[in-house]
């Protein structure tokens, strides 16, 4: 689904990514761990083409969706408008505009219902709580029907109960076949959700583990965390 080979990225003479190579299989949940400044976000941003790598090879086998750490909802649009706006450009070529508009409306309402925020449809983002904003951001990035879903620090600033909801939510997205790449510094969260975790350290891959084959992956990764900081 995603192939990366020897990716490098430098910002003002600071090496952020220093030769990253990895492959992500379809429909897997792939965790990207590492302390802050280890290059997790930059790697995600390179995959999303928000950053141009200095050199290396990156092949992405499908449309990507991206969820920002600070959500970046459009503040002047209601929740429903946030969801619907991007779909205007999804199937531009479709002949029956009315029909596709109706479908998108249906999809958006279903999505809000599934995330139990349907009563917030007409509300502006500034009156939502952090957890609600995140659900809207998740719904919005899923509206364009991505094959790969990139998620930057989805649990930052959320309480324990909400994090549990996020795990369920992301898992349910994965169940319909969407490949996920999740960057987070929260190892407990990552081990709960991922099939495979890569730990980045100073722009390089320090460990690459299959979560199911490790008896206690969080503790195992924490050892590397300590060693890397």
């Amino acid at each position: 689904m995603l192939k990366i080979h020897n990716l490098h990225k430098t910002f003002k003479s600071t090496k952020i990514l220093d030769g990253i190579s990895l492959e992500v299989e379809k429909s897997r949940i792939f965790g990207l761990a590492g302390p802050s400044g280890s290059g997790k976000s930059t790697l995600l941003r390179c995959i999303q083409q928000l950053e141009v790598p200095d050199c290396g090879f990156l092949e992405c086998g499908g449309k990507t969706g991206f969820m920002f750490q600070d959500f970046q909802l459009f503040p002047h649009m209601t929740v429903l408008e946030n969801l619907l706006y991007a779909t205007k450009f999804v199937d531009k070529k479709s002949n029956d505009k009315k029909e596709s508009k109706k479908n998108h409306m249906h999809l958006a309402q279903n999505m809000l219902k599934k995330l139990s925020i349907e009563e917030k449809a007409g509300i502006y983002p500034r009156s939502l709580s952090g957890g609600q904003k995140q659900r809207v951001a998740l719904a919005r990035s899923l509206m364009i029907d991505p094959d790969i879903f990139l998620c930057d620090e989805p649990t930052s600033g959320l309480d324990v109960a909400t994090i549990q909801d996020v795990v369920q939510l992301l898992k349910s997205v994965n169940e319909v076949g969407v490949t996920m790449i999740i960057a987070s510094h929260d190892l407990d969260f990552l081990t709960k959700i991922s099939d495979r975790i890569v730990l980045l350290k100073e722009g390089r891959i320090a460990v690459d583990i299959d979560v199911r084959q490790q008896p206690d992956p969080a503790a195992y990764l924490k050892r590397f965390y300590a060693a890397s900081s």
Partner: peptide, 25 residues
């Protein structure tokens, strides 16, 4: 800057990004 990037990740064309996302704000 995230507002521009959010528009980009959603595949919103430049003209519409300026007209509907950036300029109203």
């Amino acid at each position: 800057k995230g507002q521009f990037e959010a528009a980009q990740t959603l595949g919103i064309p430049k003209y519409y990004m300026w007209k509907d996302i950036i300029l109203p704000q």
